[in-house]
Write a protein that binds this DNA or RNA. Structure first.
Lengths: 141, 141
DNA sequence: TTCTCATCTGAGCGCATGATCAGATAATAG
DNA sequence: CTATTATCTGATCATGCGCTCAGATGAGAA
């Protein structure tokens, strides 16, 4: 058999692909772009150090007001408020006003699971996943 | 009167916060900033739509070469290669050269869990998905 | 009421980063 | 050998986005 048989022009695929059946499998099983975008934007929320520290703080303490969050994460209150604005807009956290204070808590079950999973992973596995991984992986050339 | 901003005395007890004991709890239980930064950068990798589509495609197909990934995600090959570079640099995927083709696959167990959890979450909307992962952390007190 | 405190919001600056292009590298075919 | 295919990489450009500042809003205290 020929080493590379390049079947071109699968019905949705204008590009050249080597394994059309696998490509078609992925194209069939792929989630709606809308859902993927939502998941990606949720990951993007967690991708900022300030926000993730706030979320981990909330995961730990359950509920905290803004000034406590600022103290617990060593961040300026304006920055905390700004970050909480985004998190609140995405429904990741909710705020509850009590007098002058506003208490925030995690509101998204999925995010809480992601945070929990990540914390477990960090706690149990000291060898970082994305740090100095020059072990034997990923090197091609 | 008092100084204008809250000076955070981190090592001891910051006295500008409303609930010092909770703040101290968080400060004690907080993961090393290095680990947090690594986790955040991993989430940031997943936070881009192009990269997350690539990763979900790999999650589905197991192993794909660059041109198949480009076809499966309808992305230019240069863009795919560029994204794979970052993913490979962080150890999220690994590449295996076979002739002229380079096959990529997921290489990080944590990321695979995150993707799987997210896919499950998206698939059947927001109910108890994974078992054993969710601990009792984050309980509102 | 007015003052103070906690928090929010809009605007601007500056850095980070993703997509694209063009050239380079690697491996096989002829 | 050269040519072609598959992929990688550096540079450039443009957008995005987080931090900070200054003022605004809301709630209680005097």
């Amino acid at each position: 058999m020929r080493s590379d048989e390049k079947v071109v022009g699968l019905d949705g695929c204008s590009d050249q692909c080597v394994h059309p059946e696998k490509v078609q499998l992925v194209l069939d099983a792929t989630l709606p772009v809308d859902d993927l975008a939502r998941a990606a934007s949720m990951f993007k929320l967690l991708g900022d150090l300030t926000r993730s520290r706030l979320l981990f703080a909330l995961l730990e303490a359950g509920e905290l007001c803004v000034c406590d969050l600022a103290a617990a994460t060593r961040t300026q209150e304006a920055t905390v408020s700004q970050s909480l604005r985004m998190l609140r807009a995405s429904g990741v956290v909710t705020g509850r006003r009590q007098g002058r204070l506003v208490f925030y808590r995690l509101a998204d079950a999925h995010v809480r699971m992601l945070l929990d999973l990540t914390r477990e992973h960090i706690a149990h596995d000291a060898t970082g996943v994305a740090g100095g991984v020059a072990t034997s992986a990923g090197v091609i050339r």
